[in-house]
Design a protein around this nucleic acid. Structure first.
Lengths: 225, 225
DNA sequence: CTTGACACAGAACGTATGTTCGTGTATGAT
DNA sequence: ATCATACACGAACATACGTTCTGTGTCAAG
């Protein structure tokens, strides 16, 4: 693990190690002067000098100017998990219940999935994420299977090309589709290119329940017979 | 997770939540003034006042006097992350390279995904897991898309009904299929029930490269046009 | 030899940050 | 009414901290 990276002098390595150790042991990063003392560098400017290099190499991130405001991008193994509550099932004929974004969610008896933050695509805000468990085969056109878990992000509207969960009250239907707003209608495009889109006129009510961020499928031993 | 603890006022709770969030998102704790601003407390002394109480309650630890020197003792609860190396691409016409189970893989220049152990189905042995990035649309019959990440478990043989990655040398083909050993042939069944199975005679060579454990799809904004 | 890049040190400087203190306002007990 | 306690505000203060500037020694290229 601790490997001499190309282009890193001993001091780079020592600084990196020390930051690592401090973050692990104390829970917060050291100050420049502490780094200096620990690595035998007598001047704060020299530490700054190295931190700048490490930062340019992408080995640390820092919001300079603030105290102890540095972090190790690749590590942070400690709290890199986020817990996403599974709010309920999603199925063709079922509306989705999304208890509107309580800033503090109460229900901790709920099911949840733990996801490493690093696998969440963008910098999604954690509080806006929730998960649904797919029931039935109705989402196969979205390449989503029975039993899959879809991770959603709260959203009431969508941009063209985003995959969203849509509730069509007039049809009593929930679907996951790519969303396109066009001339005088909405086009809901299945992920499977061989399938036909659904056209929804703008008169018809259409509720966007969230954007699909991620799909997780646990493959059990049993498959098709 | 976020639970109103007995004896904690809303401000205590808010402060706790904010520290938590900042540590997770930034990698280092906030300053007193930042806490104040985020929780609607206008005076630094009031924040100090609460921090002292939280500290006495053992809900935070802090080396006061130093900047941002506070930490959440209970954090690092689920260190349950495992890192799964992404060994390479998987595509219809490509053999899979699986460098046989080095007990410690050296190459850390490789890509990897972090997964919470809790979402890994069985008690798979961590070292037996690896991941592949799907290239192309050739796996759509397995409900697996271009760009998906499949998490595999090393295996040279499979039981009936398991989904496996198979290499057919005579056909120069890699596929993900449900595996069934039958009378005098193998039946490779697509996950999509509307599609026809591939029948492979027992004379034909067939290499099982691993079992599919999980599929992860990150849905980006862009979809089908 | 000169030049410039690099690694390093020390001092000066501005500010971000935590603490202390004086003050004010409720509330409840005596 | 008086006092204690919990909660809250803002100003003053000391200092820990990051930045910047100046200077020194080394080493390779010109």
């Amino acid at each position: 693990m601790v490997r001499t990276r190309k282009g890193l002098t001993e001091r780079h390595q020592k600084i990196l190690d020390y930051i690592n150790k401090r973050v692990r042991e104390q829970g917060y990063p050291p100050s420049i002067r502490e780094i200096g003392k620990a690595t035998g560098i007598s001047s704060t400017s020299v530490v700054t000098y190295y931190l700048k290099q490490l930062s340019e190499l992408g080995l640390i991130e820092r919001d300079a100017r603030y105290s102890r405001a540095l972090r190790l991008p690749n590590s942070a193994p400690a709290q890199d998990l986020i817990r996403i509550p599974i709010l309920g099932p999603i199925a063709a004929g079922l509306p989705i219940l999304v208890p509107d974004a309580g800033p503090t969610y109460v229900g901790d008896e709920l099911d949840a999935v733990d996801i490493a933050r690093s696998v969440i695509p963008a910098r999604e805000k954690e509080d806006d994420l929730y998960a649904l468990r797919v029931q039935g085969d109705s989402m196969i056109d979205a390449m989503i299977n029975d039993g899959d878990i879809v991770i959603m992000k709260r959203a009431a509207k969508a941009n063209n090309g985003e995959m969203v969960a849509i509730w069509l009250p007039h049809r009593d239907e929930t679907t996951l589709k790519y969303f396109f707003k066009e001339e005088d209608h909405y086009r809901l495009q299945p992920a499977n290119p061989t399938m036909q889109p659904i056209i929804v006129s703008k008169d018809e009510p259409l509720e966007i329940k969230g954007k699909v961020v991620m799909v997780i499928r646990k493959v059990e031993q049993a498959g098709v017979k």
